[in-house]
Amino acid sequence: MSVSGVLVIAMAVLYACGIFLLLERSMTRVLIGFLLLGNATNILILIVAGRIGVAPIVTDGVTAAEMQDPLPQALSLTAIVITFGISAFLLALIYRSWFLGRMDEVEDDEEDIAVGTRKFAFEDEQSDPDHAVDSDFDPGELEEEQLEAERSAAHPVDTGQTSGIGPEIAGEKSALIATAVRSDPGVEPGESAVAEPGPGQNSAPEPDGEPGTGPDLAPDAETDRGGRR
């Protein structure tokens, strides 16, 4: 069975890009990733059909040996239709999510965050010296830290550690809180930096017409989460 090398390479590239996009937080990218994976799988089906032949229509002078195997084409047609339908549904769902929450991102699982930040998780972050060091520059980050400190002051769950401590220490602690929160993979500010590249894909539904501005988004998400906790 001889196989077209171009097809194999195309399939591999599509799979790689698809998996990469599927792991993104932005749901539009997840959708595109899914489309790429679907196409990659369809190409895989075509690859397993084997060598390329003539159309499988019974006419004079064409033997079965020269024909292309028609079954994989039928299979991939069905798969294309199914993928198409499901992506339309997913797109509707993404639109609905954007409509409800102005978010094009997979929302945080509140329970996961509750489990991750409950009791000891915070102390672990605190005792880690690395986080304290890389937070001390960049005025923008300082501003964010204050924001975080204010925010954590507003919510009893987050302030459990800072209450009852003098203002100076509290400030230092709040910096730690800020880093602790930022280093949490489930929280926006760190995320927005990662989500920056690829201006072309960002044109899809983005909240407030300000693509990728993490700090703008973060307060909403943060208070929302805190409020429900």
Partner: peptide, 18 residues
């Protein structure tokens, strides 16, 4: 189409699709 269901639905759908 409530918010909680959309959130849960997207997780479910992406995993099922995979």
């Amino acid at each position: 189409g409530t918010r909680a269901r959309i959130r849960a639905g997207i997780t479910y759908i992406v995993v099922s699709l995979l």
